[in-house]
Amino acid sequence: MSEEDQHSTQPEIKDEDANAPINVKVVSSTGDEVFFKIKRSTKLSKLQGAYAAKVGKDVGSIRFLYDGSRISETDTPASLDMEDNDTIDVMVEQVGGCH
């Protein structure tokens, strides 16, 4: 392959990587795991909805964290710099007052 050919193929490889799906594990605080394959450019809110449907809960009652930070509506695996086989933590909102 000539040097010119190598240069011309590089951008294509990057684009492919950007859209390549990655495997993401969603883990609840009880240790239950659900696996998803998701494109790096897809909003994680889609995954959150799918997870909530899978476990039969309202998506509004579940909190999703990646690396200790809350996942926002606009976040994608690419924006969070997620890697293949990364984990998302699922936490349920808690309350307290103590009767």
């Binding site: 605080s29 909190r63 964290l65 200790g68 930070s69 809350r70 933590d89 936490m91």
Partner: peptide
């Protein structure tokens, strides 16, 4: 700790 109440669960 941010996400303070989630921290202890983890």
């Amino acid at each position: 700790i941010k996400e303070t109440t989630m921290f202890h669960q983890k």
